[in-house]
Amino acid sequence: MKKEELIQQAKEVRQRAYTPYSKFPVGAALVTEDGTLFTGCNIENAAYPVTCCAERVAIFKAISEGYTNFKELAVVADTKRPVPPCGSCRQVMSEFFPPQTKIHTSNLYGESRTMTMEEILPFSFGAMDLTHEDE
């Protein structure tokens, strides 16, 4: 799938976001290595900490369907610059995305920026940090 098509999918799903509190809808589109598409939008809650971002919704949908090999992700919001994923999303992404996975950030004005997972979250905490030297 082309970058532009992926961004368009993220724009479309953004319209289904549930954002009564922030009024800040975000859409995400995730492609697996075999070309399967998963989309997500942010879903808010009056108890703010349990809100789930669009990126995590798309990733969790894919994982729940048995997909674990990801190729690229696009995220879109109505921002002045291409919208960056929040820290929580970056951490979840680092759990499932190889370092060279492409992440396309975009806004509604046609601007976009593409980075790799490693560029968007360098020196990330991961499974290797949970092992002990004596294991």
Rank of each mutant, 00 (worst) to 15 (best):
G110Q: 06
A77E: 07
M93Y: 03
T101L: 10
V57Q: 12
A77V: 05
F97Q: 06
A28G: 06
R90E: 08
G110H: 08
A29G: 03
E4C: 01
T19C: 11
S94D: 12
T101R: 01
L130N: 09
K23D: 08
K2S: 14
K102I: 03
P122S: 10
L130Q: 11
C86T: 04
I63K: 04
V57T: 09
E111M: 12
T79C: 06
E72Q: 07
Q8D: 13
L6M: 12
C89V: 03
S88W: 08
L108E: 13
I120H: 01
K71R: 14
E33D: 14
A46E: 14
V26G: 04
P85S: 08
C53V: 02
G27L: 11
K11G: 00
L37I: 15
R81Q: 14
A10G: 05
D78F: 02
A54W: 11
R113G: 04
I43Y: 09
K61P: 00
P122C: 07
Q9F: 11
D34W: 00
D134I: 14
F24H: 14
A62E: 03
V26K: 08
S106G: 10
P84H: 05
P99T: 03
G27V: 11
G40F: 11
E133C: 01
M115A: 12
R81P: 00
T105E: 13
I63N: 01
Y67I: 00
A58P: 06
Q9K: 15
V92Y: 02
A17D: 06
E111G: 12
G66N: 05
E133N: 10
L73N: 03
G87M: 10
A58T: 07
K80Q: 12
V26N: 04
Y67K: 13
K102E: 12
M1L: 12
F38Y: 14
V50S: 08
Y21H: 13
E133Q: 14
T39I: 14
L130F: 08
V75C: 08
V92S: 06
F24E: 10
L108H: 05
Q15N: 14
T79Q: 07
N45V: 00
P84K: 07
R81L: 15
K102A: 12
T116E: 03
F125Y: 14
F125W: 13
L73I: 13
E72Y: 00
T101H: 03
G87W: 02
M115Q: 15
K2H: 09
A127D: 02
L30R: 06
I120F: 06
P84V: 08
R113E: 15
V13C: 07
F96D: 00
E33L: 08
P82L: 05
E5Q: 13
D34M: 02
K80H: 08
G35T: 07
E44K: 01
L73Q: 04
G27P: 09
P20Q: 09
T79S: 15
Q8V: 01
F96G: 00
V76W: 02
A17K: 06
E44N: 02
T51Q: 12
E55N: 10
M115R: 12
G27K: 06
T131E: 10
S106M: 04
T105L: 10
R90H: 01
L37E: 06
P49R: 08
T68C: 05
G126L: 02
I7P: 07
A58E: 03
V76G: 00
Q91S: 11
F60L: 13
I59T: 06
T32I: 01
E12S: 05
P25N: 09
V13H: 07
N42C: 10
E72L: 00
P98C: 01
K11T: 02
Y109N: 13
